[in-house]
Design a protein around this nucleic acid. Sequence first.
RNA 1: GCCCCCAUCGUCUAGUGGCCUAGGACAUAGCCUUCUCACGGCUAAGACAGGGGUUCGAGUCCCCUUGGGGGUACCA
Length: 516
Amino acid sequence: MTIRTRFAPSPTGYLHIGGVRTALFCWLYARRHGGQFILRIDDTDAERNRPEALQPILDGFKWLGITWDEGPEVGGPHGPYFQAQRGDLYRAAVMKLLETGKAYPCYMTKEEIDVLRKDAEANKASYVHRGRDRDLSPADAVRMFREKPASVRLKVAADQVVVIDDQICGKVEVQTNTISDPVIARSDGSALYNFATVVDDVAMNITHIIRAKEHLSNTPVQVLVYEAMGVKPPVFAHVPVVNAPNSNKKLSKRDAHKFVTPEVIAALRGVHAVPAEWTDEQIKKNESLNPVMVEFYRVMGYLPEGVINYLGRLGWSLDDKAEIIPIETMRANFGFERVNSSSASFDPAKMLWVASEYTKVAPLDSKIDGVIPVLQRAGLLGDTIDRDKLGTVVLACSERLKIFADVLNYAAFFFRDPQYDAKAVKQRLHKEGVAEALREFAELLKTADPFDVPTLEAKLATFSEAKQLKAGDLNHAMRVATTGVMIGPGVFECLVILGKDETLRRIDVALQLPRT
RNA sequence: GCCCCCAUCGUCUAGUGGCCUAGGACAUAGCCUUCUCACGGCUAAGACAGGGGUUCGAGUCCCCUUGGGGGUACCA
């Protein structure tokens, strides 16, 4: 039997970090066992769903490399893969349960049920609904339902125990006496989640249901639906939820704005991911550029491999040491045995570190590719792209690039004139006697040939020795004069990339900066 | 209220009765390296929620308490 897993997102417009992790586990499990991963769109809640809201989700999965074998865009033999288009299937399944006496139309009014519930509460007991029309014969049930449609409930057997042998949570047992007869279809004929999901999972031959832990409580009802349909339930694996940073509260879209801290706002502005005129409040309200959404990491220039690694490692471990686990290794080793049964907090700092490990070892070409959109968005790079120059810049930045947004911190001055930092100028350029020395050294620079790192380094060494200067002072001054700031790649590398003429020009400009 | 689940450093985790004076990683602090920053190296600090059992022996098994999460919907 081939293993089939599925992920069923709602088209909300954004791909949530927690959802991606669950989807990743589904994908990993299917791939590990040579099975299939199916994407099914849960668009039954018309209010919350907009048709255009699906694309960003698909794009997010594609960016991460989570490929689906059946679903939107690719189709498949078990379609449609949009639940809103599967209403007839649900209705047919309801009829079948009615005919076989496994379900019944419930004609009790909400008011009647409320009275029973209140009574139960008054007796400090929990209310377990058993409809009055439960014992209708199947023939009568079907006839009455045809004449007068009503909500349909599943008949829950008395005095039994539903056992779920969950691959992550272990054995979970629930008494049927604590389970109300669940409504499986509304009076208007539409199916409820607990029913629709089972009908679909059966129809799509899903063998392993891997989903968030919050669904564990629903599972007994679903198992009962499987049994009523005469189908053996699939294997269940409930993955603990992802919590918000430093908290034990679920990372929810609802609280998403809380994660847009002043640092995040600064980062988003820094990479020009939002229009400059937006206020902080507007940025907070933007749903997709939020650290709980995948899109945020794409915009900040995280390598998707890093995001995958971090998410895969969150709640799952390979062994007692491994942190950097390439996706191929995960694919080859992922299993439920090493998925933790408790929830895990999302840690942006560790995510950054993991991502940086991937960025550091990325091939030059992929670094160039990564840096291009960041520079373009910042208006530092046009449509004509000089990959050779970008290559030298990226190389000069070397391991300073943890994510591609860092190129703006370390290398912006290669693409525009220096923006002189007042503090840097004061401390480094206007330090006692330094500017004068720099003026003199600039003259010497004119004769540098070739204009490369060893030559420049040697010139500075002999010059500072002859003048009894600290080489560092001159280095620092030169950096500030040519880049405007105190941090960056090695000065000599910077000068070489800028070229002799530009270097001399910038030094000249800098030397005319007023003293404060 | 009732039902279900969870509980190791701030965070992610290793640990499946003796290998644990609890290991690794991120973050933090200090030192080293260094033209700045970043990288790298070294070091430090830092955890078994509490209480009862079981056992020669418990982070590991059982029970209770506490804390957290989920469900209890004609939501998903």
